[in-house]
Design a protein around this nucleic acid. Structure first.
Length: 235
DNA sequence: CCCTGATTCGC
DNA sequence: GCGAATCAGG
């Protein structure tokens, strides 16, 4: 299960290494040695995610131990504010242009820079974008249990049931999916499942839901269709 | 309400 | 440098 959120007694008094073992108590030895700090690694993650267009809160959550304010503050100090503003370099392909090239990109992977940083990401079998939510079992234990859905999973419409435009749009959006695990879903994160539950390549969309709906805008469009539209397209 | 980023300013 | 509090906005 995911344990780096909300460290109980944690209170970043400031920056520093809160050396005193105020929390040296019997806490889980989870990642948290010496109060969070902007290590090269963390800064790199911050830069990468910020460049990808992730929000400060999302970045904060990923990093753990910091608030979105901290992230924003750091972003400013690093001087990489306005993520917009064309970069001096050939734009590295912004990941958010709906209604655009429908290129068949089968790889939904952000591909972090191969720098010299020891990626804190799970290796081999996991989707690189997010720590795999299945740490409890030995790697050899493949074929994990069917995901216990909290609610019935939506039917995955076959390609011939949705318009090409919508399909393209959805795929585009899914590249930006937050890839949440079941436990990370909240009332307002899109619960559309993506990938095969029987493999590691499975997660939930997680983007903001349309008010009152369980899915984000893109997924609502494929989940809720007028009967007529469905009938017309089928068969 | 939920959420965003921007800024200030004591630490 | 850091980030909570605050501000301004969607």
């Amino acid at each position: 299960m995911w344990v780096n959120l909300a460290i109980p007694g944690f209170k970043a008094g400031s920056c520093g290494i809160e050396a005193t073992s105020t929390k040296g108590t019997g806490k889980h030895p989870v990642q948290e040695r010496q109060a969070m700090s902007w290590t090269d690694e963390r800064v790199e993650t911050l830069k990468r995610m910020w460049a990808e267009g992730q929000s400060a809160s999302q970045i904060a959550k990923e990093l753990g131990g910091v608030t979105r304010n901290a992230v924003i503050g750091k972003v400013h100090r690093l001087g990489l504010s306005n993520r917009n503003e064309e970069s001096p370099e050939p734009a590295p392909e912004a990941a958010a242009k709906p209604a655009a090239p429908i290129a068949a990109a089968p790889e939904p992977k952000p591909a972090p820079a191969p720098a010299a940083a020891p990626a804190p990401k799970p290796a081999a079998a996991a989707p690189a974008a997010e720590p795999a939510p299945a740490p409890a079992q030995p790697a050899s234990f493949n074929r994990r249990p069917i995901v216990p859905a909290g609610q019935p999973l939506p039917p995955q419409p076959s390609a011939n049931e949705i318009s090409p435009e919508t399909l393209a749009s959805v795929r585009e959006v899914e590249k930006r999916a937050r890839k949440l695990s079941l436990m990370e879903l909240t009332e307002r994160t899109c619960k559309w499942p993506i990938g095969d539950p029987a493999t590691d390549k499975f997660w939930f969309c997680g983007l903001p839901t349309v008010a009152g709906k369980p899915y984000c805008e893109a997924h609502v469009s494929v989940a809720f269709q007028p009967m007529s539209a469905r009938r017309d397209r089928r068969r």
